[in-house]
Design a protein around this nucleic acid. Sequence first.
DNA 1: TTGTATGCGTTATCAC
DNA 2: GTGATAACGCATACAA
Lengths: 353, 353
Amino acid sequence: MKKAPISSSNGHETAASPTLEDVARTAGVSTATVSRCLNNPSVVSDKTRKRVLDAVKSLGYAPNFGAQALAAKRTRTFGAIVPTMENAIFARGLQAFQEELQRCGITLLVSSSSYSPELEEEQIRGLVARGADALLLIGFDRSPQIYEFLEKQQVPYVIAWVYDPDQPMLSIGFDNRRAMQSLVTQVLELGHRSVALITAERNGNDRAQQRYEGLLNAMKAHGLDPKTLHVIETTYSITNGAEALKTLMQSDQKPTAVICGNDVLAAGAMVQARKMGLKVPDDLSITGFDDIEIAEIVTPTLTTVHVPHRKMGKGAAQMLVALRNGQNPDQSIELEAVTILRESLGPVPKSET
Amino acid sequence: MKKAPISSSNGHETAASPTLEDVARTAGVSTATVSRCLNNPSVVSDKTRKRVLDAVKSLGYAPNFGAQALAAKRTRTFGAIVPTMENAIFARGLQAFQEELQRCGITLLVSSSSYSPELEEEQIRGLVARGADALLLIGFDRSPQIYEFLEKQQVPYVIAWVYDPDQPMLSIGFDNRRAMQSLVTQVLELGHRSVALITAERNGNDRAQQRYEGLLNAMKAHGLDPKTLHVIETTYSITNGAEALKTLMQSDQKPTAVICGNDVLAAGAMVQARKMGLKVPDDLSITGFDDIEIAEIVTPTLTTVHVPHRKMGKGAAQMLVALRNGQNPDQSIELEAVTILRESLGPVPKSET
DNA sequence: TTGTATGCGTTATCAC
DNA sequence: GTGATAACGCATACAA
């Protein structure tokens, strides 16, 4: 049996947050009624509701999240873990994701894993532990234990930025392999035969790996030997892109076209090319991937693959909301990623033909 | 009195997460001991600790966040609300902020307010409600109610990206006014007399407002009439920057130098200038503010004000951790923001002198 | 429509 | 060192 509260409105006004009970007392109703007013207003009479809401406002009441989560076993919170927030690759998609969630009254928590599988795992567990009702993840590539963990914890999740009907997990994205293959095909059709790739580390990054494979496919289709492809793996950053281009242009077999795994690396390559006095695309063609803002800022503008960031974000949100509501949604969704031709891609230099 | 548990290890193995009690049972100890093992290991004997930890691992136990927050009254979680995540303005600072927090075992939750005061207020309340132990905010400019709310809830907070010793709140940042004044002074000393400003909406954005004031100060100091300043207010984006430059160059009094409130607007202006066949800086000088990555990507490279993003992020984290630990830290911290001279700023065109 | 009573999973204060 | 046990603030099944 509950003991009488020690002293509900005792002398010293502590600054502690008001609780449901405080509201109930000043409104002259039970805590249950207050709770209902807030969570299921339609079931309580207009008169008492008004009284309660007034009390809520006058006390500045705000529900205690921990208590709420503990009692209701859900948090109205979704989590997202992206590899990075430092550049704009995921920013636009995330923004769209959040906008959609907000319309559904859901709060978004974002973490960035810095492309570290260990960190990502930690953050997934962290978000689940703090009650995320659902999760957005990037790419399929992670340890089976994590997937088991998510299944065990019954936390719905969606994988974005990739699409693969053969994978059992629900995903929304595009075919990175095909998109890159299509881009490179256009490069080769311009006569380029000496091609190089600057990419993120492919280990643990299926987007990068698939883009690489798409490039190989295009080469093979044009009768080029994949072994002739010069690949540089590095972390996404302007500086690293620049560094990589420098290395490439100092090698024996100088490429006439440099394919970059994303726009950030491509931008770095462009900066470096200019620094080395190379005219793009007259001396050298450069392509990117993602079509983020810098693609139109660099000089010359960057030929790249347009990724449907906003569609992915919004779509992912809708899938997760459906899952959270117990609806077992359709299937994975494939979006299109198309090549955007801009200035940085041109025919192979005459001197090379 | 607690009734005997209905049936602790009943027939159907539910997939529900194991609780402290489960761990206690399989380890043959009390829940109190398990809790101690996890939170204050030194106080429990080696033998039992080992037994408990084994049980934890074998069950895959993870503490319930809600319960923990409810009982311990703290969440080891800090919140940050930034105006935007779509461009890189706050990304680097936020990254540093997070890195420092992580070293202290604290999780960071990030929200973006899209420069909307109402949204920001909602998100502040949201983060507090979900138990954020401390908050990072950008700029002083917000309604008194929010500050009252934070005081009432006893949630420590630090304001970043601005510095003003006259403000009562703890802050870490730089003097936006002075930084802009210094930049513009250098512009004027190159002979420019016809200057224009492309800025974010200043209402509710003290950084933008102060940068504007700094610009005015510099003009006055050089005997220029502030009324001659052509100001265009727009939202931060490449496109808007381009749009604004177009408007400016079609006006009667064409500027010879365009000061931009940040690098994103400046990049847009640069793109537009090129499109209009204007040579930067020969025909027109353009400056930015922030020194984010694109400043070095645009052609020509952008003269701008370097903002100490990482220092601010790390410093803010340290201040908040101190506050959370009950230490009443020093004072607000002022950092330097210095002008970085690059290619986009040149002397006033000869035709104008 | 409203109130009562219980449980959610931890932490922390006691005793032992 | 360890084990009971009382909060913590809310949601909800059940009663009224």
